[in-house]
Simulated scan of single mutants.
Amino acid sequence: MLSSTQLATMLSLQDGMNKKVNPDWLNAGYAYLRAAMIESVEGIEHHGWKWWKAQQKDLPQLQMELVDIWHFALSDIIIGFKGDIQQSANTIAEQLASNRSQVTFDGKDYEFTKQDILDNLELMAGLCAAKRFDVPLFLKIVEQAEMDSDELYRQYVGKNVLNFFRQDHGYKAGTYQKIWNGREDNEHLVDVLSSLDINLSDYSDKVYAGLKHRYPQ
């Protein structure tokens, strides 16, 4: 289960990144749940579902789609509480603590703990299309994609901090170096993440500092 520190960190990072894109993002009317719906469908594609052709499950890509969905879901939740990070965190925590195992959609009850990952991804896409997001369902899908809440946190913070780092070091202007010492920035990020304790209260700051230490000055 995601801790209160992890929730507060992720929500604050999401708010910060959205403000970097548009300081008035709360009122911009961006379709975050539409984006989450599209990513849900892409997750189905990465898993493979077609019975008429051979397919291989791409688990890392599927996990990456789930991390992207979480970015959009957090954004939508923050908007729902008019930018109140604490209230957003409390609501997510309450949903997770409820241990709810089913969701009602279009008048039908779905017991998502008994469904496979493809049915759950499809259900999540349907809910997002109806402008709804269900946190317990999402965390069940995360578990079915062979991630735990700590791994979701690690990947989420890593991707978010790397985006911040790129922006701060000339990504928009085209002066950012994506390859340092013969390796892509994503690879350096993996090294930094593996060297840090995710329970640190300043975890995201430490990730940023780790990238800065490695980046050629």
Score class of each variant (00 low, 15 high):
D168N: 11
Q6M: 15
T175C: 09
Q14I: 04
S98L: 06
E143Y: 07
G107S: 07
Q6R: 13
L211R: 03
H71N: 11
S40C: 15
D150R: 13
G48S: 06
T5K: 14
L118V: 13
I69H: 07
K178Q: 06
A93W: 02
L59P: 01
K108F: 09
M64L: 08
L7S: 04
R166L: 05
N27Y: 02
N27L: 03
W70E: 05
I69G: 05
D148I: 09
Y32T: 02
S204Y: 14
P216F: 01
N22C: 11
R183Y: 00
L123T: 12
L139W: 04
I141F: 06
D58F: 02
F72Y: 15
Y176A: 05
L62P: 00
T9H: 11
W180L: 00
E65W: 05
E45D: 15
W70L: 10
P60L: 03
L74Q: 08
A28G: 07
M10F: 06
N160F: 09
K19H: 11
N18M: 09
A36P: 03
W70C: 10
I38S: 11
K19N: 07
Y30H: 12
H47G: 07
D185I: 06
A31P: 13
H188C: 02
S204R: 12
E187W: 02
D15Q: 07
L96S: 06
E39V: 10
D150A: 10
L96Q: 14
N99H: 15
E187S: 08
R183I: 01
F81N: 01
Q55Y: 01
D205F: 12
V142S: 03
K114S: 14
R154W: 09
M64F: 08
F72W: 12
D168M: 03
Y215M: 01
Q155R: 15
L162F: 10
Q115K: 12
V142I: 15
L121R: 09
I198S: 09
T104A: 11
G48Q: 04
L2V: 14
Y208G: 08
D76G: 14
V161C: 10
G107E: 07
E65M: 05
N27R: 04
D84P: 00
V192I: 15
S195C: 10
Q115N: 15
G182Y: 00
N181T: 00
L7R: 04
E42L: 12
D116V: 05
K212D: 05
V41A: 14
S88Q: 00
Q86V: 01
E122P: 03
G174C: 12
L13F: 10
A125P: 11
Q95L: 09
R154M: 13
D84H: 00
L96F: 06
L139S: 02
A97G: 05
R214W: 00
L123G: 11
S204H: 15
T5G: 06
